[in-house]
Design a protein around this nucleic acid. Structure first.
Lengths: 110, 110
DNA sequence: TCGATTGTCAAGTGAATACTTCAGTATCAA
DNA sequence: TTGATACTGAAGTATTCACTTGACAATCGA
């Protein structure tokens, strides 16, 4: 059951890991190579590449190889999916809370 | 290293699971008992309770026991933390994109 | 009171996850 | 061309995770 690239589940899973969030954080400051990205972390290059793959699959990062250097940048798609999901949920249950308030007001009136 | 209740990592982890998202979805429609919540799922009551614990710890749900029934509701705190995180990231890298646009415009002018 | 309902607790299992190591390959610079 | 750089790929490992089972406690309704 291969999830599509914009799958909200993938985005949540990707951002559930602290190292991956730190990578996103770093990518927010601008494009960087894989080894440049790995430098501040106390994990191997391989591990960073693995995280990067997950971030790409969830639409949170984009990478491009030129020569022997792979350049990484943020991708807004993943965040947009996330934003939309939250927006939907929030409106959903704020509507419900409003309805609840109405009912309470109604009972108060009786 | 006990993470505080508003820890963004917990929120992401909690929402990374499809069953937990479905639970949140259901809770959006109104309060419900644990067994009521478990009914549509093909997993045990115990598993649902475990999910519920994770949702509570991440500030996405709230439960209260009265008699033998534990009533579950959504909690907005977790979502708020999530919203804030996204807002911060987005402004961070939109500012960066603006700066990039400026530089490009500048070079264009030369 | 007694049986059914509703939830709790402890322990175990299989799969997924975040890592590692090691052995490559491709590219660049001198 | 040669050595260093920048990554890639496969395979293994320890831990975490979602879930189960089974035994139990508390509460409610008849």
């Amino acid at each position: 059951m291969a999830s599509p690239k914009g799958d909200i589940g993938r985005v949540f899973h990707a951002l559930g890991d602290p190292t991956r969030r730190a990578i996103v954080e770093r990518l927010s400051e601008g494009p960087i190579s894989v080894s440049g990205l790995a430098a501040p972390f106390s994990i191997t290059l391989t591990a960073v590449v693995q995280h990067l793959q997950i971030l790409e699959e969830s639409g949170l990062a984009r990478t491009e190889k030129s020569g022997r250097v792979r350049t990484c940048r943020i991708e807004t798609a993943g965040l947009s999916v996330l934003e939309q999901w939250i927006k939907d949920r929030r409106s959903l249950w704020e509507r419900r809370l409003d309805r609840l308030a109405e009912i309470l007001a109604e009972q108060e009136g009786k």
